[in-house]
Amino acid sequence: MMTQGDNIANDILFEWLLRRGDTALILGHRVSEWCGHSPALEEDIALANIALDLIGQSRLWLGYAGEVEDRGRGENELAYLRDTWDFRNILLAEQPNGDFGTTLMRQFLIDVWQDALLEALKTSADERIAEIAVKAGKEVAYHLDRSSDLVIRLGDGTPESHWRMQDALDTLWPYVGEMFAADAVDEAMAAAGLAPDPKMLKPGWEHTVAAVFKQATLTQPQSDFAHKGGLTGRHSEHLGHLLSEMQFLQRAYPGATW
């Protein structure tokens, strides 16, 4: 087993870890926005559980990122004291909640990808990455179980739930491609045996998604157009608003602790 820094430049590993941690953090914060607003009490608690799982995962990724960077920043500094252009989450994660169907579709599209990614990361040559993937993998397996079930139920539900789910899918589809776009960071990670090439995850993702959409009676959009930029810090306008809320306390009262 390797330890950090072997066989890969620290700045590349840091960059890749931020992508994992930021995607989990931003999606987790988005899901947490439902707390107290969900359509049913049971759903409210389920969404809060998922948000907490994701924020927990981001702590592991960002904690490791801070160690790799070795400039004295820990998970808290990375989460609360960076600005928009420093975030490396995929654009899909920061898209607004919209209606319940949009939140659910966003979760499903990301869950299928995360599930495959974490499965592959369990055999990473980096011990820490493999450990995080094992822990997060169990949580994400449940998230996927739940989100795919609800996508099918609502897609194949009432006329209103069907059009809302189709509408959500059509709206979010242009953000799917970013999950599978590989750049130099991904290629270096793959070459070092630390992470899979994102492109390799696409056939499995497409297979699962197509099977669920078929059961859900949803029509998969044909367009290949993909918004990109989240992984290099070029975000949609939504992220700044999200951060202004998420980071408010540390911005208004720097250094505040419990």
Binding site: L41, E42, I45, A46, N49
Partner: peptide, 20 residues
Amino acid sequence: SLHAPDAEMAIRNARDVYTR
């Protein structure tokens, strides 16, 4: 107790509400 549309979702909801 809890509300759910069917048994399968009742199990999921119970997992989320009562086994956290």
